[in-house]
């Protein structure tokens, strides 16, 4: 089991109190699993990413236990985490296109980066070149400044850099959102290939585009307002979702072949609650078409079928 997270709580400290951006997340990512993480903006998906890789103020670690490869992951300790970052756990940030130092040539930057982890650039150069071949970048990029590369090329360069030390877990945060469809597809396929070639053991892919996840992910986890709503295998989430939020989210996606004049799609009315002072009970209650009195209590995140977790009272009732 690569990553095990138990009841992780991370709040943002503000002058008006804590913003409960991630409030009790429990999940596991298996070896070789590509887990997709989806939800609306502000639901806590990027907070989850940041708390696994760089938990810095105003973020505050409130509680929870994390294990990576059966070893405790001390996310609350900036210094101790240095032993894990880049080597064991790595990220491709949302701003991957601007992630490289603009004042250094890419090769020089890479060597400095490796130097900071006390790894010799020369030893790793052959492997680096092999991987550049794989993502169809020429070796010349190492002698170029980031500004000389196109957006897609920079993205691929950062992908190679992030995975250079074969981390156990790679988190890709919205890396395909700024790309157009044909490049998007190539980048998504590359993520799968990196997993297949065991450059990374497992992956968390964060995006708000569920259709991308359907193409590449093994399992999908849906978040809503800082809580986990549902987690199951990709097929199950897409074809037989159980949480009302997941159902609405999937039905609001336009597909090729759907036309306004023939079938009018609906969005989800209302907006997510403010997390500064979230309502008690189920956080989706206000927008949920199926809400009933029990929803005033908070639903637990329970496994209703094998590997299918849901946090919704209605679904527990059906199964009971």
């Amino acid at each position: 089991m690569t990553l095990q997270v138990e009841n992780l709580k991370v709040y943002y400290q503000t002058l008006r109190g804590d913003v409960k951006a991630l409030d009790g997340a429990t999940f596991t990512v298996e070896d070789g699993e590509i887990m997709g993480l989806a939800g609306e903006s502000g639901c806590g998906k990027s907070t989850l990413n940041n708390s696994l890789i760089l938990l810095k103020p105003p973020m505050r670690f409130v509680g929870g236990r994390l294990e990576l490869d059966n070893e405790e992951l001390p996310v609350w300790d900036m210094k101790k985490m240095n032993n894990f970052r880049f080597k064991k756990i790595s990220t491709i940030p949302q701003y991957a296109m601007d992630a490289m130092n603009p004042t250094r040539k890419i090769g020089k930057m890479t060597s400095e980066l490796l130097g900071s982890r006390k790894i010799d650039f020369k030893n790793i150069l052959p492997e680096l070149k092999r991987r550049l071949d794989l993502v169809e970048l020429s070796y010349d990029v190492l002698n170029m400044y980031p500004i000389e590369l196109s957006g897609g090329m920079k993205q691929r360069m950062v992908m190679v850099l992030s995975t250079l030390l074969n981390p156990s877990l790679l988190i890709a945060d919205e890396i395909t959102s700024a790309l157009d469809v044909s490049t998007q597809k190539a980048v998504a396929k590359m993520l799968v290939e990196f997993r297949d070639r065991e450059f990374v053991k497992s992956l968390i892919v964060i995006t708000h585009d569920i259709s991308i996840l359907y193409q590449i992910a093994d399992s999908i986890m849906i978040m809503y307002a800082g809580k986990l709503a549902e987690k199951a295998s990709t097929e199950v989430i897409i074809n037989s979702p159980r949480h009302p939020y997941t159902k609405l989210l999937i039905s609001s996606l336009p597909d090729i072949g759907v036309k306004y004049s023939q079938k009018k799609l609906k969005g989800i009315p209302g907006k997510p609650p403010l997390l500064l002072d979230p309502p008690t009970g189920c956080r989706f209650r206000e927008r949920c078409p199926a809400a009933f009195e029990k929803c005033l209590n908070e639903p637990p995140f329970i496994e209703i079928e094998k590997d299918h977790f849901v946090a919704c009272w209605k679904e527990f009732k059906k199964n009971a």
Binding site: E136, V181, S182, T183, K185, A186, K189, S211, Q215, I256
Partner: peptide, 22 residues
């Protein structure tokens, strides 16, 4: 054709079409 084949869809997985990046 390439564009339409690359659109991520919920009812069909991508076919094995190579997208040329270069």
């Amino acid at each position: 054709k390439l564009l339409i084949a690359s659109v991520p869809r919920l009812d069909k997985k991508w076919e094995e079409v190579e997208v040329k990046l270069k």
